[in-house]
Amino acid sequence: MANNTKGRRDFMGMALGGFTALGGIGALYAMKRTWDPLPSVKAAGFTTIDLKDVQDNVLVTEKWRGKPIFVLKQSKEMVAKAQNEIGKNGKKSINRLIKIGDNYYMVAVGLCTHLGCIPGYNPEKEDFLCACHGGMYDATANVTKAPPPRGLDIPPFKIDGTKLVLGEAGPEYKKMLADGTTLAV
């Protein structure tokens, strides 16, 4: 074939290739967005829980965004114990508690920070054990034995009288985030 058509063929090849590549990138973006959680999933992210009737050292499990939420009201002795406790990752246990009036509550996502099993609470020993790989937490859900790298994550919360709104970040939660007591969930 004549050499003088080669330049034109190359040009058409590159032009078509360029547009195809652009379209390909666009399609990849669309595919990524299709895998994203739906807006309805994102929006159903608020739950209000009432802490009025919770008993000392009795674990209550609520549900938020499909995840179990642990609520554990601390007795006087438990608060005193938490004052001096430091987790495996160097964080103070006492900072993890939420104070409402004169009462202290542990509120956390009940999924092990290792790989997400639900740890079980032992009220006598006042600790949590994760049966999956043997991780342990104290009564404030601070980590005391690996493999979990940190205490149970604390969900965003806002205090509203004796109620907690989960999913909304109030000043007390923002402080916990800022000093590294919990990571964002």
């Binding site: 959680p37 992210g45 965004r65 499909g66 995840k67 999924l111 790989l115 997400g116 099993c117 999956c132």
Partner: peptide, 28 residues
């Protein structure tokens, strides 16, 4: 739950990636 959590990469804490894979906060 456990296998998709592997994708958070431990200390990388890539929860966004895990939720992207699941299309939800938990398997649903």
């Amino acid at each position: 739950m456990v296998i998709t959590n592997l994708f958070s990469g431990g200390s990388l804490h890539a929860n966004g990636l895990v939720e992207w894979i699941r299309g939800d906060y938990v398997p649903g």
